[in-house]
Nucleic acid binder design. Structure first.
Lengths: 239, 239
DNA sequence: GGGACGCTTCGGCAGTCGCCGAAGCCTTGT
DNA sequence: ACAAGGCTTCGGCGACTGCCGAAGCGTCCC
């Protein structure tokens, strides 16, 4: 092993990177990008490894502060420790070649289409829907990309009118572009992206399909998104 | 090897992360964060490995699109491929524990102090100086942190008056906070940070100490920075 | 043209790490 | 109290990767 004896001073990049350098751990992290907490066994099955193997990987990720764990009864739930971790993983994913295999079964293909259409990405919306919302907000002057991404004054009042609480200023950027690996185009992330997505769930505009990352737009949601952003009926009713 | 047979679809996180998961390769990347091009042998000596070893690592990094290479005569120069790569490395570094060993020799300690005071970080300014400039710009209303980092209108005219060309809108954010691992506080990065730093070199406000990342403020620079940002004489003459 | 220098290729060695299954612990539910 | 299920610990195996030195190729400079 070479990364145990760092030859130069400075931050220990390698120790963090090594956590993500394994296919199994990476697949855990990608799964956890949905922002929810998974149990150890769920992740093990998802990645196709034995429970014992998953345990060891999870320990490493938790010790490395990439994941946070929470124990409930006989379950061990883990989730990404931090929005910063989610951002790091997104950046890494955007840089990586997408080596998606063509879906094998019909149901897999349906799942894949649903995912591509609308899904959560950590704590905000991605997929065709996420990109469409971002584009529409830009067209209407709610977002400004002129010098980096920015929420305009109009954007703030628009959100307030919808009932979305714009979070107070924190370390976390209010708006941030997140590069999607199916769309290859940026969509709205950051504190505002998360607030908007959370509100959409709370207000019943969208709901999860089963327990996956995929979401579907309710009829309520179709009304609001068409009214407020002019999203096409065609896009909204697709699934 | 486990990352060669990905069990799940999606971007191949692990293949990118693996490139940074080795201590030697990570040290290359950290060195290259100074934004300059290094030769293979320089990097080998820097990391304390044989030239043959460095060659192999560099090949891997270039093939993985993290580095760009340029051959000149018998030299092979490499640099970070992209500002996005620099950003990725910074993010990773900010997440990693800083395991700096206490400097052993007196000259090493001097070097370290100079580095901590003022240095380049990829293509912008970091260290005490970089943070001080960022703070001063914020105090004077040239930067706004209210909802993520933003360059204000005043900021734009201030830059123009100084002769700094504000780059046109591109994919790269104009302003971006970069978290410094000595200061642990954000300083100005992004296209504007790069332009400001470049101008400071061109106009002779700062110059490199030897061929390191450390910079020193010239008397010219002391005037300008004191006039324009009210930086203290004490800070500016320190080295 | 010859020597110095920078880079590359090629074995070969050693250390690490990921994987599994078996056995054991703890919580939950009957 | 017992069974079931989730999680953990512990060897042990196999594979990969990083490291080096020697030898070779190309470029530069005398």
């Amino acid at each position: 092993m070479t990364s145990r004896r760092p030859r130069t001073k400075g931050p220990d990049l390698a120790s963090v990177a090594r956590l993500l350098a394994d296919g199994t751990r990476a697949s855990f992290c990608l799964a956890l990008l949905d922002g929810r907490a998974w149990t150890a066994t769920e992740l093990a099955r998802h990645a196709g490894v034995a429970a014992s193997t998953a345990t060891e990987h999870l320990h490493a990720l938790v010790r490395g502060n990439l994941l946070a764990e929470e124990r409930q009864g006989r379950h061990r739930y883990v989730r990404l420790a931090d929005p910063a971790v989610a951002e790091l993983i997104e950046n890494l994913a955007a840089m990586a070649p997408d080596q998606a295999a063509p879906p094998r079964s019909l149901s897999a293909s349906g799942r894949r289409r649903a995912l591509a259409h609308a899904r959560t990405c950590y704590d905000h919306l991605a997929g065709t829907l996420g990109v469409a919302i971002t584009d529409a907000m830009t067209e209407r002057g709610l977002l400004d990309w002129e010098h980096g991404l920015r929420l305009t004054g109009d954007g703030r009042t628009w959100l307030a009118k919808l009932g979305v609480t714009v979070p107070a200023a924190t370390r976390r950027p209010a708006v941030r572009p997140c590069l999607d690996w199916t769309e290859r185009r940026p969509h709205l992330a950051g504190a505002v992206g998360a607030a908007l997505c959370g509100h959409a769930f709370d207000a019943g505009w969208i709901s999860r399909i089963g327990s996956t990352r995929a979401v579907t737009v309710t009829s309520e949601g179709r009304h609001v998104l068409c009214d407020q952003l002019g999203l096409s009926e065609e896009l909204l009713s697709r699934r």
